[in-house]
Amino acid sequence: MVLMARTGLALITASLQEKLVYRFDLIMGLLRALIQIFVFHQLWAVLFTGVDDYAGFTLEQTQTYVVISMSIMPLLDRSFLPQVNERIRSGNIVFDLARPVYYGNLLLYQGLGQFAATLLTTSLPLLVFSFVFFSIAMPDSVFTWITFLASFCMAYYTAFLMDLIASLWGFWIASVWGLFYAKWNLLQILGGMYIPLWFFPSPFKEIVLLLPFRGVAFTPLSILVGGVAPEELPMALGLQIFWIIMLLWFSKFMYARVVKKLAVQGG
């Protein structure tokens, strides 16, 4: 356990140092996120002119949602796809698979290291900035915060599992850019990162609400802005758990196929 904590800390420090080497890039990255926040903050302000609420959701809720969504987006839409594909193409992947640690967990630890580094260098500064300059309303109930954090942890894991599955496809597809963009775009639009799902027209909305993508951003964020009534909470969290189990099963299934495929090829 101590060893794991120490390894984890080392990974986080490494990711953090990597980020701080390119300070200029880091600052430009923040600027970029702020532009995006500003664009969508302004979009909803214009759309809500002369309108009190849409389907029960106010401008303040919507703006809080998008501002926080875009601040935490760098934590959730990171992808291992190019990195894994590079290792598959170079053949170095066999060394990763031969390690005593399950490959998925190896990526997860790396991902958590990057998560901590991104949180400290990108998301927290963005959130602080947004608090100061944008009108956003945070919940004051402790219960809401706890459910948000629980849902957010599951959101991260859902995003990770989807990325793992997409990365494993790289064993069958030589050029993964299509997969990379498709995954990224579906996550952003169907996950509700740019537009909260409550604005989606029916029956499209009802379908999207059943898909796993909502668990990546929409579920935690709508809990945070008070868009989920207490009686809907078990359903929202339950769906996240359901999809995590399904994705976890599917990733293990694919991993087994990968190992078998490699064995057949004999390296």
């Binding site: 299509g178 997969l179 498709a182 775009n185 639009i189 537009i195 027209p201």
Partner: peptide, 26 residues
């Protein structure tokens, strides 16, 4: 090649949704 084309074309769908959803609501 076809998988790449199909995958990247998803961006086009996202683009349309970014316009369609706000205008269908407002």
């Amino acid at each position: 090649f076809l998988i790449a084309v199909a995958g990247i074309s998803v961006i086009g769908v996202t683009d349309i949704l970014l316009i369609l959803i706000p205008t269908s609501a407002f």
